[in-house]
Nucleic acid binder design. Structure first.
Lengths: 206, 206
DNA sequence: CTACCATTCAAACACTTGTTTCATACAGGA
DNA sequence: TCCTGTATGAAACAAGTGTTTGAATGGTAG
């Protein structure tokens, strides 16, 4: 009953995203993927070459979008007359949370991302560092200039903690139960607000 | 060349810890495990019944120890005349960091723990919540009483961020390179100090 | 010694894995 | 209409999976 309006490639990508998020790369088989996608087993190797390559294209599709949103947000913030630590963090977080609440599979992808990082997947780390490292550096630079008294070493530690808190919280998104009185959008804004406050205070620690 | 001084059971547990940390539960096979452990393949099912059960005993062995250390540390802190947020956090973190730097496989286990949480493994979550939940509640209660002005909802969000930062940072332990001038013990104390400062500030956020 | 028991071992079990093969369907261009 | 290249299909491939079996081992108690 999968939507036949989408191409075979897209149906495979979406099904893979869901299943890999649920069971891991090794845990979900191509037969499960193609079954959910309503596609022949051979289609994966035909369109993607291999399982490994399917995973790469999975990440590329989402990370290109996420990184683009982040650069756009950061650029806007840097244009403003008074730049705050909070606004920079917001520019970093908001696109990720939007993705985490996207109904088109973004939810799965965010969990997948958290999992991939926990897996210490060298392949993925290189991939992220090579393709999106410059954006992360931009954020680090902006944050650093807003905390001029902070030693470089302290900054690195804290940025590591911030990424951890974000990754973990996003993968857990929904564990902190959304009260029925809040819309999803309100819940997301709430999460962003909570995170930005926490992270900013942590970064500013005495 | 695995140390033959240890029993078959222990050799299996250690090898499994390493391999599961490296490749995931689905990614590492029992044949790899038994090969590294220098043990016959059938030994796993003989001593543990199944791969699933092997994983459970893996967690039990380490978490029992970790939780015991944490309760002991917390009890000592609560005995002191003046209790600070920092000392409670320290009681929570120090045993974990000790484990993260233990040469007897603790390093692998910490990464395994981070991975298991990212996997959103329901089985493990129930296991942790059932067996060690009360200790976590103790910490939450202590922290809550030290932040009387903080709304319950805010506290929950921030505790979630704190666990995330810790889990992630520990699994990444060593990514922030230890300078050669520091001993491992100094590096660990440094990490603990950095984390406690960051987490305390985040929890105290305005 | 004998009998017993827990342990180890090689081999096989049934099943799943990613990948390949080759036949088929079907479109658009000459 | 015939040809061509892309896409899909069912089936098979070799390799790897967790688990089971039944025989061999070796130490211990009677």
């Amino acid at each position: 009953m999968t939507n036949q309006h989408f191409s075979t490639k897209d149906r495979i990508l979406s099904a893979a995203e869901d299943l890999f998020a649920k069971s891991g790369f090794a845990g979900a088989s191509l037969r499960q993927v193609t079954s959910v996608a309503n596609v022949n087993l051979a289609a994966v190797n035909y369109h993607f070459g291999s399982k490994e390559n399917l995973i790469n294209e999975l990440f590329k599709r989402r990370l290109d979008e996420l990184t683009a949103q982040r650069t756009k947000s950061l650029e806007q913030v840097l244009k403003e007359p008074s730049i705050t630590l909070e606004s920079v963090l917001e520019a970093f977080v908001a696109p990720a949370l939007t993705l985490a609440q996207d109904r088109g599979g973004g939810q799965s992808f965010v969990r997948l991302l958290a999992r991939a990082f926990a897996e210490q997947d060298q392949r993925l780390r290189r991939f992220v560092s090579d393709n999106y490292g410059h954006v992360l550096k931009e954020f680090a630079k902006s944050i650093s200039s807003l905390l001029p008294h902070l030693a470089k070493e302290d900054l690195y530690w804290r940025l590591d903690f911030v990424s951890g808190a974000l990754t973990y919280a996003m993968s857990d998104f929904g564990m902190i139960k959304k009260p029925p009185t809040l819309s999803e959008d309100q819940h997301r804004q709430n999460a962003a607000r909570q995170f930005v406050r926490f992270a900013a205070a942590g970064l500013r620690a005495p």
